[in-house]
Nucleic acid binder design. Structure first.
Length: 103
DNA sequence: TATCTGACGATAG
DNA sequence: CCTATCGCCAGAT
């Protein structure tokens, strides 16, 4: 299936995200098989991610997509994701990631 | 083929 | 809490 190419892998991973689940660009990149390619994931989304649930993909800091905060927050809230001040409630939204614990 | 950009990630201040 | 800088990768020009 489309899981050998970069756009194909990213397309499959994002398309496999369940409702109420919020993954980060870094996670999507790792799941796609390209760890560290978080930027490439975001770039591909804006360019060819029109048919994908891009709103289920947020930054690792919980920040919503710049320029689409309103639309992004609306979709997440509709899916049941907790959004506050253009931020996604990390720690439990998807059951992964716990933000930087402490150095 | 080379260079720049970008819906990122993390650390430092 | 915020802004700034470096490092990462793939796509577009």
């Amino acid at each position: 299936m489309s899981g050998d190419s970069f756009p194909g892998a990213v397309d499959a991973v994002i398309s496999a995200i369940e409702s109420g689940t919020v993954l980060t660009y870094g996670e999507v990149a790792v799941e796609a098989g390209y760890p560290g390619a978080a930027r490439a994931v975001g770039h591909h989304l804006q360019r060819s991610g029109g048919t994908l649930p891009w709103w289920r993909v947020v930054a690792a800091t919980g920040r919503l997509v710049p320029g689409h905060e309103t639309e992004h927050a609306s979709h997440l809230r509709r899916e049941g994701v907790e959004v506050t001040a253009n931020r996604v409630r990390m720690t439990r939204s998807s059951g992964r990631r716990a933000r930087r614990p402490n150095t």
